[in-house]
Amino acid sequence: MYQEIILDHYRTPHGAGLREPFDAESFQINPTCGDEITLRVKLDGDKVSDVSYETLGCSISQASASVLTDLVVGRSVEESLRVLAAFQEMAQGRGQVEPDEDVLGDGVAFAGVARYPARVKCALLGWMAFKDAVVRTPQSSGGARTDTRDSEEAQS
C-alpha cells in the first residue's frame, strides 16, 4: 500500500498550508478516526488556480491531498471533477478498478489503498473537501464566500 510515490508526497507535500486569497473553504472530518482537513479553493474563471490545505491525518490522507493539488490546479472545474470521479471510483473499487494513469497521474499509487476498506476514507478526505469547497464557491453557488466550520458531517 505504501508506494514510494505516496511516501514522497507525504514527506514533501505539494501545496500544503492555508493561503489567501480563496473563494471557498471546506472543513472535513473522518468520524471513525478523527482526522481533519481544512481545504481552500481559489478559482480564476472556471479554472482552479489554487488549492491550499492543512491536514491532521495519516500519511495516506496527507499524500492524497498533495496529489490532489497536482492534479487539479490549472485544470477547469469540470475537468477536475472528472479526475475526482476517477480517483473515487478507483479508491472505492476494492482493487477491481484498473486506474488510468493518463487521468490520475501519481494518483494511481493509491490503487493499493482500495484493498484496505478502512483506509479508503483517508484517501478520499481531501477530495471530498475539494468537492465541497468547489460547490461553495460564489461562482458555482451564486452565494458569498462562506466559512464552513459548521459543515462537520463529513463525507459518507
Binding site: C58, S59, I60
Partner: peptide, 28 residues
C-alpha cells in the same frame, strides 16, 4: 508517525490493534 500508519504496519505483520479515538474523542 500517525496512529493509522502505525496500525497499518502492524496489520501487515498480522498484528491487530485499534487505531483512532476509540470512541473517546473528547479524551483524545
Amino acid at each position: 508517525v500517525h496512529a493509522h500508519d502505525v496500525g497499518q504496519v502492524l496489520d501487515d505483520r498480522g498484528i491487530a490493534v485499534r487505531v483512532g479515538h476509540h470512541c473517546a474523542w473528547p479524551l483524545h
